[in-house]
Write a protein that binds this DNA or RNA. Structure first.
Lengths: 213, 213
DNA sequence: TTCACATTGATAAATATTTCACAATAAAAA
DNA sequence: TTTTTATTGTGAAATATTTATCAATGTGAA
């Protein structure tokens, strides 16, 4: 399923809607209202309805949205039909944290390999994911048709890691280092900069504090 | 220093500009052009100039921007004069990763305490940061005037952790769990959802792939 | 049957963010 | 001295995103 030009922000929220819906699915409820979804995510009901409109989903005027149907539809839109395989490069604390966070999340995304340079980590299995030496990266990525790479190495190695991943044929990159990366246009890159996030919190916390004083 | 209504995105970039500038400061260069900053961060030069305009900084028509001056000005705007103290709650892999990432970053932000529930971690020092039992959270936060909290606990404990932090007087929160939190308006909350980020990468990688096929 | 009600769906307005386009300027070159 | 050049600074346009508003609708109550 493909919808023209879904806004980035909507894609992010769809992922969040699905998670929220999966959580309430277990209960006896079969339907949910836009204001209920909105409340769970602390956004406005209009925002929810607008997003659902964009993906062409219609609710029931009296009962709201069918939870199961909606979960399925979101899956059809944001998941790839055959699933996508993911590799984590760098098995330090951050790499391990990422793997644990994903463990158990049933999903079309599966982390199937980790890479590191430290001999002690090679050939060990962490949380179900085997760790290989980075020299094998290209080979394993191609063999296993891995299309997404997560960069969790020390920043100074980020550029070369990205380059290797791109050459190995990766289609999307999630960069956790603060080093901005350069990738060709056919690779989607998302930067995820913790230091900037913390500095942003610090700034707005300070500002808020002045305002409410 | 205070500038009215600096856009969120600009605040994020200011943090990034500063880091990039600090990296090139060591060299003999004293000035930098907007297109050089832009290239380092993979954005447009106009964007850079617009941001600097918003903070009221003027460059030299021929030499560009004075690196040292600019770093200082950004500091005056995004840092708090007396600095801000930070606590990390949850000293699992993620908590440890966050602490390591910040280590050595000279900054007005300092992580000065960690909290966990696991007795083996209590009273131990990780990367210069002492870990305390979460029962001491309120006391230590108040005593040390900690104003920012980082939530890195398992998601199911996120809400109660947030509540405790807010009651202890925290001003800003950075939430690494996928659980959306509820905080009063005088606390600034930033959500940092790894799963959503990865799903977003997967979506756009898939889309890109179709487009360039 | 009719009315009141809560909710969806969608147009239009508002807000936020980025980019275009170019005047102004000062240094270097001619 | 005059011209060329590269750069900044910024109003205006473009784009992206969120929010306001309200007609339409179907259900249950009167």
């Amino acid at each position: 399923m493909f919808i023209k030009n879904l806004p980035h922000k909507t894609v992010e929220r769809l992922s969040q809607y699905r998670r929220a819906l999966l959580m309430i699915l277990s209960k006896e409820k079969t339907h949910v209202f836009s204001h209920e979804i909105a409340q769970m995510l602390h956004i406005t009901p209009v925002q929810v309805r607008r997003d659902l409109m964009l993906i062409g989903y219609s609710g029931n005027l009296r009962k709201g949205y069918d939870i199961k149907e909606l979960i399925e539809l979101i899956g059809k839109i944001i998941d790839s039909e055959r699933g996508q395989r993911v590799a984590v490069v760098g098995l330090g604390n951050l790499g391990k944290a990422i793997i644990s966070y994903f463990k158990g999340k049933r999903s079309k995304l599966s982390i199937i390999a980790a890479f590191d340079i430290n001999p002690e980590k090679i050939n060990r299995v962490y949380d179900g994911v085997a760790c290989h030496h980075i020299s094998q990266m290209t080979e394993i990525i191609k063999q296993n048709n891995i299309s997404i790479g997560i960069i969790a190495v020390p920043s100074e190695y980020a550029p070369e890691t990205a380059e290797t991943l791109v050459l190995a044929g990766i289609k999307g990159l999630l960069n956790f280092t603060p080093k901005p990366l350069n990738v060709p246009p056919f690779v989607y890159l998302e930067e995820y900069d913790m230091i900037t996030s913390l500095e942003k919190v610090a700034f707005f916390a300070k500002k808020n504090d002045e305002r409410f004083k």
